[in-house]
Amino acid sequence: MNLEQGADRATPLTRIIDAALQRAGGWLPFDRFMAMALYAPGLGYYANTSRKFGQMPDSGSDFVTAPELTPLFGRTLAIQVAEALDKTGTDEVWEFGAGSGALALQLLDALGDRVARYRIVDLSGTLRERQQQTLAKHSGKVEWLSELPETLRGVVVGNEVLDAMPVQLLVRTKGEWFERGVVRHGDGLVWEDRPTELRPPVEVQGAHDYLSEIHPQAEAFIATLADRMKQGAAFFIDYGFPESEYYHPQRHMGTVMCHRGHLADPDPLADVGQKDITAHVNFTGVAVAGQDAGLEVLGYCSQARFLLNAGILPLLEQATLAERTLAARLIHEHEMGELFKVIGFVAGEPWDAIGFAEGDRMHTL
């Protein structure tokens, strides 16, 4: 079935997508389309030269993340990272998807000599150039990689990384399940649903039509990380829910969203490569993937609770009024405080991590 389309003009990226469609018989599952739209070398959203990160649209940016909002985010996270370095007996920090380099700078400034090496794993060459400029004063400690190493020891951080990993779309129509993919129709890319044996990880109650996502790539990433982490801990911060909330009957339109110029829209088939495409994180799936691969879950809580536990309030007391106003967005429920969650893992012996000291929600996963 053909559904509403996002018309486009032919671009180098859409021509690559058209070639992939032709090789695949005319239909691509959404995760393959999303991967090309975001990561096609030199052309995908995260591989091209657009600015992406910034506080305001007039900077040419598309969205703001916590480290760009205020350095108090990284300074607070550093308190948890320092504890994790001590508990795991390691001296390296690994960051996945380092964006503008703002978080790396905040962590390196705060951790000082506690970090011997800061390794960034990022697929974007243009973002790497920006990171190198941001981190120039720490250049002796920073190393860039384009893929996971065979073994890893240290503390991993990832802020808004899992939401950018390609997802598969599942749609229930008149009681039947389909996988939603992309086809070419005239001058536009359009949706087409095909019957599938795939299902969400929990049964979605009700008989109404329903659209949602499954996250095999994010879960495979966590499993691979677990397999290669011989010693250390990991902390991922992102927006999402446990699966009981993710697949709630009322969340019937899914969570895929696009961001451009600090505005959101729900059409990933339009302006391909020129805007971000994200989906919320199923933290239950992430936790299970880590556990099944040998990691222990240290905790799971809201970003607000994590930052309060880790010690943001004393930092706020020393901040200016303007800095406090920005930092408040990190912890207010109607801003980032409740929608964003933090999950922690450890390879080795778990401990009572400071970030999860109060308000741990592991029982909801």
Rank of each mutant, 00 (worst) to 15 (best):
L326H: 00
R199Q: 12
E333S: 11
F241R: 12
G273Y: 13
V64E: 04
R361F: 01
W177N: 01
G240C: 10
I214R: 05
D31T: 06
T49A: 13
D109V: 00
H280T: 11
T325P: 02
G26P: 12
T126R: 06
M253S: 14
C258E: 08
A287T: 07
A35R: 15
L123M: 07
K341Q: 09
L295Q: 05
P200H: 13
A279Y: 04
E333R: 12
R32F: 04
E147K: 12
G355L: 05
G89I: 08
W94T: 11
D122Y: 08
E92G: 04
K275G: 03
P67V: 11
Q133G: 14
L148S: 10
E323F: 02
L169A: 07
A10E: 14
D113V: 08
A218T: 06
S139C: 13
R130I: 03
A24Q: 12
F235D: 09
E335H: 14
S139I: 11
A19N: 01
Q318F: 04
R119K: 04
L103F: 07
L111S: 10
G285F: 00
M362T: 03
D86V: 12
H332A: 09
G26W: 11
G99C: 06
R51M: 11
L127S: 13
E338T: 06
V155T: 00
G89W: 09
R15F: 00
L313I: 12
A233L: 02
L316A: 05
T65G: 03
G44D: 09
A19D: 13
L43F: 11
E213K: 00
R180V: 05
Y39R: 00
L225H: 06
D62A: 08
E335G: 03
G154Q: 07
L308F: 13
Y300W: 11
A20C: 03
A35P: 01
Q303H: 05
G359M: 03
H252D: 15
N159H: 14
S244A: 14
